[in-house]
Nucleic acid binder design. Structure first.
Lengths: 242, 242
DNA sequence: CGCGGAATTGAAAATACTCAAAATTAGTGG
DNA sequence: CCACTAATTTTGAGTATTTTCAATTCCGCG
């Protein structure tokens, strides 16, 4: 049992989950949804800064979905400054360890979160018999591939300001998809973690934020950001100078 | 019909394909393999520098697998200096356009190649009834996610020499997995294309090659490379200085 | 043999990093 | 609620790295 698991939660049926439409059981009817609850190993709360899973954890037969909150994934240890991604509600993690391998990375909650742990073998078996689930699972896997490709594209942007603008726009789009503001949100991660993700230093992130602010692109107050000029940010992400 | 398609090929059964064990129908028995041939829309040859598919091509209902040769994929047009990947035999491409979207990128043969075009809808339908195929398809999708994550990890390496060393090692491992030498191979892509992929300039690649050579890490003769010091390259990829 | 793209090289300029210090904020316990 | 400590963030100066731009060389190919 993980230290981070404050408690197993009361049965929150997928049917009542706010994230249902962007999660695995999207599009399932009531009967199938009933069956789907069997693939869920458990749901648990995780406090800020606590691990969801650790490098070398058991065998990779578990897939995680963020129900509430946010999580960062790292390659190797959490402290190795290799941040591979930030995940928000409805997003899967732990795919890199499937099928059957042990976790080569670790995941840390960036804020108090709720996680659904899904049995991969059981999911496979349910996919055998529920076609809509199988279809949607394929779609989600390919979404994941696209997401990773977007990350790669962002990292190939040579200039640091391009990368950081693309990063802010990515967060913006993902918050918007969840019904939150696309222009006003809180960074749940530190400057250091942003830097580790973008292949930059924390100092550079700090300076970029200052530059963006003086160019009227954003307003910043601690970790709260306001995107003032989305077209400007897009132009920057695509290589314009400022 | 694509200009690049010199001719449709005689029916090469998957059963006789050299790439069988790292391709989609891996592990299928003879009966299933027979069925699998129905998901293949066509196989075609593509000459060096000719497109496999183009940005905006029909709707994305086609998945491509490299049977022989090598292909580069780009985001947007081929000329936009946004290389998203290099693909060798047995590797899939076109996943980013599935399901149902049009190709947002394009693919270009780096050498004379043979490509299998697979109908995604038919593949889905065959997955409905052939469990081993479905399992393996899932595995391949997750392999793809891992591959993309490795690319991201490589791009996050701050120093150019780290990135390039990781690139050479990645090629090495992939050639080795296909039974070729892990230490001696030909770069099928130009310095410019390597640079576009790694977020560096062609000049930098050229200089890095010179540095690696004088550090006895590699020997280079035009596009032929010999990896002389794999441990050294690994150390470099992981951040050691030279 | 000559043309043209690819690769190399050099020097200057731009960019991001390192290291160190100061300022700010968050967390903890009295 | 405040004080104290630890952590995060900001800032500055100097350094290292990579890019840019231009010129040259090298090959492959007709």
């Amino acid at each position: 049992m993980n230290l981070s698991e404050v408690s197993n939660l009361r049965p929150v049926e997928c049917a009542n989950c706010a994230m249902r439409r962007m999660c695995l059981p999207e599009g399932l009817d009531d009967g199938n949804l009933q069956q789907f609850n069997q693939v869920i190993l458990r749901r648990f709360r995780t406090l800020r800064r606590e691990p969801v899973y650790r490098s070398g954890d058991p065998v990779g037969e578990t897939l995680y979905v963020v129900r509430v909150g946010g999580v960062k994934t790292c390659h190797g240890g959490v402290d190795q400054q290799q941040v591979t991604g930030f995940h928000m509600s409805g997003e899967m993690l732990g795919l890199e360890a499937l099928p059957g391998a042990s976790h080569d990375g670790s995941a840390l909650a960036l804020e108090d979160s709720e996680i659904c742990a899904i049995s991969y073998p059981r999911l496979e078996r349910l996919c055998d018999v529920v076609t809509p689930l199988r279809r949607h699972f394929h779609t989600l896997l390919m979404d994941e591939i696209r997401r990773e490709q977007r990350v790669s594209a962002m990292l190939r942007n040579s200039r640091a300001d391009q990368r950081f603008a693309a990063f802010l726009l990515d967060l913006s789009a993902r918050y918007a998809a969840r019904g939150y503001s696309s222009t006003r949100f809180r960074l749940t991660m530190s400057r250091q973690e942003i830097g580790d993700f973008l292949g930059l230093t924390a100092e550079s992130i700090s300076r970029l934020l200052r530059n963006f602010r003086s160019a009227q692109l954003v307003a910043v107050e601690r970790r709260q950001v306001l995107l003032n000029d989305m077209p400007g940010l897009r132009a920057l992400a695509q290589g314009a100078a400022y």
